Amino acid sequence: MTERPPSELDDRELLAAHCAGDPDAFGELFRRHRDRMWAVALRTTRDPELAADAVQDGFISAFRRADSFRGDAQVTTWLHRIIVNACLDRLRRIKPTSELPEYDLADRHDAHSSTVIRLDVQEALAKIPEGQRLALTLVDMQGLPVVEAAAVLGVAEGTIKSRCARGRTALAELLRDKHGDGYVGGTS
């Protein structure tokens, strides 16, 4: 359907080509963005199986509803919103789960410090309100601009800014409570 191969098209062109019937266009979009969407889903659900299901649901939904893309945001923002909504749908369907499993403090001495920090941050993220966790995941962990995170979550930019600020404060307090003021991953 297109004169150039899908790998040479930008995201908007790929989505348009998909809507026009190009059988390879959506596959290229998937290849470009699956890892980033997986990371968003994993941080949102905190469960690899739920994340995998949500990514699958989200991409199937995007495939089927590609003609609903209005073009007033980037394609990646549109995909983020679909994936986050798929995650939230999956999470609503299950009973509340327990937090991340505790790990033996003695084992921490043998683990690489960045892994320990990552686990501690994941555990702390699980304890903050969903809105703050989603805002921090999109802005701080995925690097989305505030305006895009606002579009993904369907809230005002100011809401994203305040959720991020409150979330960062809550995370810092949780990490300080766990490790004291000398925590290597905390603020000084």
Rank of each mutant, 00 (worst) to 15 (best):
M1K: 12
T2F: 08
T2A: 11
T2D: 09
E3L: 13
L9F: 05
R12G: 12
R12F: 06
E13L: 07
L15C: 00
A16H: 02
A17F: 00
H18K: 00
C19V: 12
C19A: 14
A20E: 07
G21D: 00
G21Q: 00
D22E: 02
P23I: 03
P23V: 03
F26C: 00
L29I: 09
F30N: 05
R32T: 01
R32N: 01
R32D: 03
H33W: 04
H33R: 06
H33G: 05
M37I: 06
A39Y: 07
A41W: 01
L42R: 07
R43T: 08
T44S: 11
T44N: 06
D47Q: 08
P48G: 10
E49R: 14
A54E: 00
V55M: 00
Q56Y: 09
F59E: 00
F59I: 03
S61F: 13
F63A: 09
R70H: 10
D72N: 05
W78F: 06
W78H: 03
H80R: 10
R81M: 11
I83A: 03
V84H: 05
A86S: 12
C87M: 01
L91C: 09
L91H: 04
R92N: 10
R93P: 06
R93G: 14
K95I: 06
K95R: 15
P96R: 06
P96Q: 04
Y103Q: 12
Y103M: 10
Y103C: 13
D104F: 07
A106Y: 11
S114I: 13
D120H: 04
D120N: 04
D120W: 05
V121L: 06
E123S: 13
A124H: 00
A124Y: 02
L125W: 08
A126W: 08
K127W: 00
P129W: 10
P129N: 05
E130I: 12
Q132H: 12
Q132E: 13
R133Y: 09
L138C: 02
D140S: 15
Q142W: 08
P145L: 13
V146Q: 04
V146P: 02
A149M: 02
V152G: 03
L153M: 09
L153T: 00
L153H: 03
G154I: 04
G154E: 07
G158P: 05
T159Y: 07
K161S: 13
A165V: 12
A165L: 15
R168Q: 15
R168E: 11
A172L: 08
L174Y: 07
L175R: 06
R176Q: 11
K178F: 03
D181F: 11
V184F: 10
T187M: 10
